[in-house]
C-alpha cells in the first residue's frame, strides 16, 4: 500500500492506494498521525484506489478518526469502493465514518 498527502485550503487529503489490511493498517495510522502532528486536523482519506479493506484497516481508520478529533478536527472518507463499502455496512461503521463522493465534498459545508 502507498500513502501520500496533499494539504488543501481547508483540509489535508490522504490517499491510501492498495490493500488496507493487517500489514498496512499500522502504517496508515502512523502516516495520518504524522499529518496531524504537522498541523492538519481536518483529514479526508481518499479511498478511490483502496481496493480492499479488512477489519484491521477499519480499526486503523477509527484510530485516525479519534486522533483527528482529539486534535480538535475530524476525519472523513471519500470515494469508497464496493468492497470497502460492504465492510463499513456489515460492521455498521458507515454511521460513524461518513462516506463522501469526492474528497472535495467532505468538508465543503463546514
Amino acid at each position: 500500500m502507498e500513502f501520500s498527502y496533499e494539504v488543501k485550503d481547508s483540509y489535508a487529503e490522504v490517499k491510501a492506494d492498495g490493500r488496507l489490511n493487517m500489514v498496512s493498517a499500522p502504517k496508515l495510522r502512523e502516516f495520518v498521525t504524522d499529518v496531524i502532528a504537522g498541523g492538519s486536523n481536518r483529514i479526508v482519506v481518499n479511498l478511490e484506489n483502496t481496493a480492499f479493506m479488512d477489519s484491521s484497516g477499519l480499526g486503523a481508520l477509527i484510530g485516525c478518526l479519534k486522533a483527528a478529533r482529539q486534535a480538535g478536527g475530524d476525519l472523513r472518507i471519500a470515494a469508497v469502493q464496493p468492497q470497502v463499502k460492504m465492510v463499513l455496512q456489515l460492521t455498521s461503521m458507515d454511521k460513524v465514518l461518513t462516506a463522501y463522493g469526492t474528497a472535495e465534498e467532505a468538508f465543503r459545508n463546514d
Binding site: D54, K66, V96
Partner: peptide, 16 residues
C-alpha cells in the same frame, strides 16, 4: 463499541 479499534473480525467473517 463504535470507537473500538479491534474485535470486529469474527462477526464480519460470520456475516460474509
Amino acid at each position: 463499541g463504535e470507537d473500538a479499534e479491534s474485535g470486529r473480525g469474527l462477526a464480519l467473517i460470520q456475516a460474509l
